[in-house]
Computed example of a mutant assay.
Amino acid sequence: MIKRSVLLVIGLISLVMGVAGVFLPLLPTVPFVLLAAFCFARSSERLHRWLMTHPWFADALNNWDQKKAIRRGLKRKAMVLSSLSFAISIAVVPLLWVKLMLFSLLVALLAFLHSVPELEDTP
């Protein structure tokens, strides 16, 4: 019961962050929505079903769920916006070890995104 509650809270927070990412250019949407889908699948069937059929997110979530791939344009956007977000964070943070950690996380994220298969963008 506690595990489901924790996953539900994490899913809701992730969904809020993902929705904010739709409107805020430096906040990535896709990772937060994927995390929300993961959490909802294990905590709330109703929220998971709602998220998987939502017009804003259904295409990307279903592509990931069924094909383990994302659209080329979405992949590029995620890479560019994540890079910009990390670059701003690295520029603002005064501690060298934090800058190195952020840079390492960026490299890992970009490597992961690069390894994800692409789907052709649909017009």
Rank of each mutant, 00 (worst) to 15 (best):
A20V: 14
G21T: 07
G21Q: 07
G21W: 08
V22L: 15
V22M: 14
F23P: 03
L24A: 08
L24V: 14
L24S: 08
L24Q: 09
P25A: 15
L26Q: 06
L26V: 04
L27S: 11
P28R: 02
P28M: 00
P28C: 03
T29V: 05
T29Q: 04
T29E: 01
V30I: 12
V30Q: 06
V30G: 04
V30A: 10
P31K: 06
F32C: 14
F32E: 05
L34S: 05
L35K: 15
A36E: 00
A37F: 03
A37M: 02
A37D: 01
F38Y: 13
F38E: 03
C39V: 03
C39Q: 01
A41M: 09
A41P: 06
A41Q: 04
R42F: 06
R42Y: 11
S43N: 03
S43E: 05
S43K: 04
S44L: 07
S44P: 08
S44D: 07
S44A: 04
E45V: 08
R46Q: 11
R46W: 11
R46M: 10
R46H: 12
H48R: 02
H48F: 04
R49K: 11
W50Y: 07
L51G: 00
T53C: 15
H54Y: 09
P55W: 01
P55C: 00
W56I: 11
W56V: 13
W56T: 10
F57D: 01
D59E: 15
A60N: 11
L61H: 01
N62S: 09
N63I: 08
N63V: 06
D65V: 10
D65R: 15
D65A: 14
D65H: 13
Q66N: 15
Q66E: 14
K67I: 12
K67S: 14
K68D: 12
K68M: 12
I70Y: 04
R72C: 07
G73S: 09
L74V: 12
K75D: 01
R76M: 13
K77G: 05
K77M: 10
A78N: 13
A78R: 05
M79W: 03
M79D: 00
V80H: 09
V80N: 06
V80Q: 07
S82R: 08
S82I: 02
S82F: 03
S83P: 10
S83C: 15
S83I: 05
S85A: 13
